[in-house]
Structures are given as C-alpha cells and as structure tokens.
Design a protein around this nucleic acid. Structure first.
Lengths: 345, 345
DNA sequence: TTGTAGGCGTTATCAT
DNA sequence: ATGATAACGCCTACAA
C-alpha cells in the first residue's frame, strides 16, 4: 500500500551541519540543547549553518533517543461531533494553536465503540504520544481510571464528576456562569428569572441549575423558582418553553428565561416568535455556549474560555505527577446581545 | 519544562519478543512485515509471544528506519472554526476514524497568520509527517504550489479553483447538489424556484448558482430567473430573503427558495415566520450543509458525503505521484425534511 | 569548551 | 527459513 518515497530530497542532518561548521556533531547538539556550554563564536557559526542548511532535528530520532514524543493523543468522538456548539472542536483548535508554545503536537485518534480504551492502548503502545487529552467525560467513564492505573499523563477537558480527584482536569464553571447571567438579567430590569434545563441526571445540567438557584437566593427571589426540563432538541425545547412561558406571564419585559444551552434558548426563541413576542423586549433570554447560532440570532450567551482552557491543559500535561491540585475551574464570560438587553438591539 | 518520565514501565521491544520466542529479532520483524517468509510453527510461536507481551512496534524507531512517518499534517484554521456547518471539523473526524485503515495518523497544526507556509515547513522538517491534508483553499492559495514544488504528498479537501490540475483534491459537487434540489422542489409541486446566494466572487457560490440555473434550464424555466445575493450572515440573509419573497409572490405553496447555505436558509426561515408563513407549506426551502440547525429546524438541506470524502482523501495520499486524475468530485445527498415536503411534516 | 563512543528500536541487506 | 550486521539521526555520558 504505502510506498516509501525516499526520493524526496533528503533533509540536512546534524552531521551535515557539523561538517559545514567544522565541529563535531555533538557540538551541534549542544548548540541546540545546551547552548550555554558552547563558546560564543562557535555558537554563532553553528547557528548560521543551521539556518543556511535549513536544518531541523528529526523528530523520530529525538523520540527514539529521549523516550519522549512530545505529542499527545486527542480522541475525536464521531457521535458527539454533530452537536450544536461544537465546543470540543473549538478546544482542539485552541490546543493546536497553543501547542508550539509547549513544544508539542496533537495526534488525533478514535476509539472503537465497544471498548473505549482500545484507541488509547494502541496509540500509547506505539510510543507516538506521551499522554492524552480526554473530553466528553461521562459518569462511570473508564478512561481516567485506566490512565491513572497505567501512569499515563493526561488532562481532561471537563470535570470527572464521579471522582474529581482522579487525575487533573480543566473545566468551565457553569454554575458561576449561570449566576452571572441571572445577575445580569436582574440588573437589566427583568424581575423574574425562570430556568429551562435538561432532564435531570446530567451532572453538567445539575451544576448549571444550581447556579441559577443560588443567584435567585442571593437576590431574595428563591421562593417558587420556576423551571422546565427537556431534552436538548429544538422541538422539545420549543414545547417546554411554551409551557414555561405560560406560567411566566405577564410577558411584558419583566420576565426572563435562562437556558442550559443555546439549543434550548433557540427553542425558547421559536416559542416567543410564535406568540409574536420578541426576545429582549418582551422576555429576557440567555443561552449557553455562544454557538454560531447564538451569534446569528443575537442571543445573549455564556462563552467558554477555550483559549485559556487550552493553555491550562498544556500546563497540566507538562507538569509531572498527578496531584489534582492543578485542576482548574474557569469562568465563562457572558456575551451580551439584544436578547437580554433591549436597548442594545 | 517538560521533564522526561522514563519511569513509566518500559514497553516490550522486539528483542524481548525474540528472546521469549527463542528466535532472532529479525525473525520477529519478519513475522510482522513479511509473514510469508516465516515457517508456520515459528510464526505461531512468535505471534503468541507478541500477544502475551503486548508488544507494539515503536513508531519512532520505525519512522527513523523507514524514513516514513505514516502520519499526515492537518492544518486547523482558527478563523474558519466558528462557521456554521463546521464541515471541516466533520471532515477531520471522518479522516481520523478512517486513518487506522490506512495505517496512518493525523497530526494537527496551525500556521502563522502572516505566512501560511511556515507551519507546513516546520512540521515537514521534523519528519513527523509525510504529507498534508489541506482545506479551505482560497483563490491564489500559495500552499498547493509550494507543496508541489517541494514534492510533498498532499490532498486538498476542496478544489483548487485557480489550477485544478495542481495536485489532487476531493470535493463535493455543489452544482450537482443544487440541480438535485431544484428537481426535488419541482417534483414536490413548487413551480418557481428562486435562489438566495452569496455575493459574487466566491467560486464555491458561483458553482452552486450554476447548478440552480442549469436545473431551471433543464425544466424550461430559465426565463427571468429570480435571485438575491448577500453575505453569509443571518441578518443580511433575512433582509435579502425579504426582498426576494416580495418578488416571488404569490407565496401559496407554488414558490420555493434555494439557498447556498444553511445560514441563508435560516435567514429565509426568519423572514417567512415574520410574515406568518411556514416553510414547506407556503414556500419550499432548501439549504446547504445539513448543519445541526438545519436538522433542528426541519430544513431540507444538502449533506456533504464526508465519510466517502475521507476515504478518497486517504487513497489519494497513499497513491504515489501527483497526476490529478485521482481527484474526485462527490455528490452531496439531499436530506429531505418538512421545509420542502409539507406532507412529511 | 569540544570530541568520542555507544545505543535508543527497528528494518534492509546479505549471508547462511 | 533464519540470522548477523549495519544503519536511520539524535542525545547522554564520559573523556580529552
């Protein structure tokens, strides 16, 4: 199948540089890895030759020698790929952009559906990666346990809800985000804030819901909190929002709806439009994840700090050990659009 | 910064297997790469030891020896990442899932904004990859030229419009998709099909537009084709759709709107709802890319065959040479929902 | 400060 | 059918 094409013009090696600069190959290696050991004139001369020859150390040789790939596996999940928001895709992009700063690369892979560990085992076996970034952690996720047991460095994007101390993670504080959103809505003049969330059982959803409740309590509005729960599907969300809006009346700009996701918020928007109402003016509306659609529909939404999360993840990966004190809970930022601030329309 | 952790329990090497099986390491290598040269009993014994010891060949050593990484670079584009549809993300996922079938891996990387070649040069220099998958090809894209000049294997997802013969690509036939959509709309009973596309200058958009025109001509409906053009933004699309719908009247189920993207179709949907009209029943509506939102809104849309495209891309990468005869234009499939078939609602 | 020797794990070549 | 030898490009130790 794969035919080698050794034909491609051979790249300069450390030996070529050494000869050109009139030094031993070891000196060139030192120039690269321990420049302080090399005398200035030599250093300059070698560096010039490196530049001239366009020499780049061969990664395979380095890996072989160092027993270190400086690369990490990133599992892509075909089933999760088609969700709205695509937060994981964005995280992969940010990790990739940040990678050079950590002398690292990312290798993508997919696990078999039957056994979520196979992909990890195989990739690790080849030595192609030193560790992993895991995402989409579920309850009872077998991956953290396996990684810890095998002493494989890893970082999870998303808390491991079962056992937060099992390894390290970076996550976004949905609860704090929701509190922020409630405070914002109240500040904008909405007096009642209902919640549209997912059916219980999702730790992520429960966390966000708690933020809503906490902010209500803080504002002294905790009696009879109004909420609706549904699947993360547009039609279901529209229906659920309808029910909620009925109970939220009057819809005269004094009520707002806080949603656990942009999809739910989108459903609420449809419901509003069906009644001839407008988000923002008649009912405050806030979503979560700041998807493309939120932007398009001028929906206020909570944006995850993916850039910061990526850098934190790299730092964790490059810090030996597994003490969970490095785990970080980052705050999302509220992107305010006209669905929660009528003047800004 | 990065501290080695050679500590991780060392993996079995080919030598371990050889000793355990009582053969030379070369024989083990043959079992792996040229099993036909090895006698059956030996083969079985060695394989058993491989299994028992959980031996996996070290990728770095193989790369070093073979001058072949069996890995390809995939550039992620931060600025393009937030588009609706996220087709490129989906393609990356499909490529990753298909990769094991081609004994390959994907390494992600990002180029600097100033110089789109830097990332390619660097990654190739390390020998970490044998070639590249490029996406988001623009007019005057310098990458294909550079890759060809440097004899670097690559495949482009998306035609290189300037010079289709420069290397090989896999693309989706937007034109054929649009023809399909028009035929479908006519078959569903809509009698007039207007087009909502992007402002001119995008070869992709022009191609799709041509499909619409061709299908109209085929049906003998080519006189006075009605069209509107705008940016791929929701608000602009809504406005443009408004204008188009005015000219399309009567909107009594005899007219349809074919859109160059789901975003444009979403704008049209908003415009329809603003008039109290319903997509499907009152005006046929078709989008492009089958995004999550299209699914949620029951919007008929053209879906790109990413799975097939991924396999084709791998085949191209594994076929030496650069004759462009391998390039492929794949047909999208029309996902029919209620926005173009009222009965199905 | 610079150079020499050895080996990381694998495979191609050539011999037996 | 199997094995010995050398080499891929680099880095760590040690020696000069």
């Amino acid at each position: 199948m794969t035919q080698g094409r050794d034909l491609a013009r051979p790249r300069a090696t450390i030996v070529d540089v050494a000869q050109a600069a009139g030094v031993s190959r070891q000196t060139v290696s030192n120039v690269l890895n321990n420049p302080e050991r090399v005398a200035s004139p030599t250093l300059a001369r070698v560096r010039q030759e490196i530049e001239r020859l366009g020499f780049t150390p061969n990664a395979a040789a380095q890996q072989l020698r160092r027993h270190l790939a400086r690369a990490y596996g990133f599992e892509v999940n075909p089933s999760a790929a088609r969700r709205m928001g695509h937060i994981v895709d964005g995280f992969l992009v940010e990790l990739t952009v940040a990678a050079p700063g950590y002398n690292s690369h990312l290798v993508t892979f997919a696990s078999e559906a039957e056994n979520p560990i196979t992909g990890y085992e195989r990739l690790l076996g080849t030595g192609l990666v030193d560790g992993f970034v895991i995402t989409d952690t579920l309850r009872e996720d077998p991956r953290p346990r396996w990684l810890v047991d095998n002493e494989v460095p890893f970082v999870s994007f998303g808390r491991m809800w079962d056992s937060p101390e099992l390894g390290r993670w970076v996550d976004v504080d949905g609860r704090a985000g929701m509190e922020m959103a409630v405070r914002h809505l109240l500040a904008m003049g909405y007096e009642r804030v209902a919640y549209l969330g997912w059916e219980s059982g999702s730790p992520l959803g429960d966390d966000r819901r708690r933020g809503w409740l906490a902010a209500l309590a803080e504002a002294g509005l905790a009696e009879e909190p109004l909420a609706g729960y549904t699947r993360d599907e547009l039609m279901d969300a529209t229906r659920a929002a309808n029910g909620l809006l009925d109970r939220l009346a009057p819809l005269d700009g004094t009520a707002a709806l806080l949603c656990a996701s942009d999809m739910l918020a989108l459903g609420a928007m449809r419901s509003l439009r069906g009644r001839g109402l407008e988000a923002g003016r008649d009912v405050g509306l806030v979503g979560f994840d700041d998807s493309t659609v939120a932007e398009a529909l001028r929906l206020t939404s909570l944006r995850q700090p993916l850039h910061e999360a990526a850098h934190h993840a790299w730092r964790i990966l490059h810090q030996a050990g597994s003490d969970s004190s490095l785990s970080a809970l980052l705050s999302p930022s509220l992107i305010i659009r006209s669905s929660s601030s009528f003047e800004a329309a």
